[in-house]
Amino acid sequence: MTRSHARKRPVLLTAYAVLFLLFLYVPILLVPAFSFNDGTIVAFPLQGFTTRWYGELSRSPELLAALRHSLVVGACVSVLATGLGTLGAWVVTRYPLPGKAPVTGFIMLPIVAPLVVLAGALFLLVQTVGVGLSLYTVGLGHLIVCLPFAFQVMRSRLESFDDSVLKASRDLGEGRVATFLRVVLPISAPGIISSLLLTFTLSFDEFVLSFFLSSTEVTLPVYIWSQLRFPGRLPVVLALGSLILLASFVLVVLGEVLRRWRTDD
């Protein structure tokens, strides 16, 4: 490789990196940009600065209800999925079970199947059983999709730690339950946090299942979809979107800080 060639490359690479980042972030940054735009039409040029859409947020009870539904479903689903996933991963990594390999091999199946198919199947199932659509059925759908992810995250975490630590705990006088609480849980805490965040995110912006399985109480994505018909409502949705972006950003930064702090220590 010649010297000039080697010197040229960073220019191209830099250009590529800039384009790459623009492609990734510009669409997202449009959301806060338009949320402060003083006009109902979402198009350039921007028409002046306003915070009125944020004020209007608090006067949109339906939107706030949808947000609350999404948060509640997300919280319940992530906690349930992570709890069940942890127990499942625990059993699979510690005990020899007949048929373990095929069962764990197929565990991702609900995700590989097209969501529409799964949603349709669940819709039929709910109709057949006759329990009626509600936020519970939405949560059930989300749980089915989130469980495999939680299981996989927890399995890789639990597989990586040494059995002798468990023996040591029992040798030092702790029974199985206390060992789980004092050793297994803290060691798997990073896995549990990733699993909670991952499954919450999956549930929070899930659309297809929510659409099929909800009735009058809808989650945020379904609500937003229903509002797209009214252009005048869009800026309020953008204001909410910006707040959610801000919250995610804070969470990610916080998570990173926590992670560094833990590894430094």
């Binding site: 040798d171 702790e174 050793v183």
Partner: peptide, 18 residues
């Protein structure tokens, strides 16, 4: 194990990493 008057020093040390 948790009730025996014995304690073990494991080959791998089995430190609690957390």
């Amino acid at each position: 194990a948790e009730k025996r008057p014995t304690n073990m020093v494991f080959q791998s040390y089995a430190m609690f990493p957390h």
